[in-house]
Amino acid sequence: MNFLKKSPWILHYDASSCNGCDIEVLACLTPIYDVERLGIINTGNPKHADILLITGAINAQNQSVVQTLYEQMPAPKVVVAIGACALSGGIFSQCYNLHQGVDSTIPVDIYVPGCAARPEAIIDGVLQAVACFNQKQTIRSNQKRTSHGIKLDSHH
């Protein structure tokens, strides 16, 4: 049984959002929406997280940050881009400082539209991301089987 389905832990990073989507992500945790009933926890730490929620578009400064956070998350992991800006840059897509959507930097699995995305949409996005895990988990276990007994780490 895949327990990722029952306990997806999220990491939220505000790339260059206007706060609109951010506070809606936060609002998901609070009593009206209460995502903990679905086993979702906002960890705030890439090493504990399964799902990376990114709001806002990528800019020159935060590109490496987003990359680092993504790399530090243990596999399997899923990225959810939230809001118009994270999808494509949104209203700011013409700004000189932006690299457009999140998928310009890291692979995105689920796109949640909206400006600002509503909490219901965000929760739906997370649950769709959970469904993604099934595929990823299968891929991972296949890999694991082939590289059994060998440390996954090439650096070591």
């Binding site: 505000d14 959002s17 800019n59 935060n62 700004c95």
Partner: peptide, 8 residues
């Protein structure tokens, strides 16, 4: 980290 340059 959030600079977009929207005045421009």
């Amino acid at each position: 980290f959030v600079h977009r340059g929207l005045e421009k």
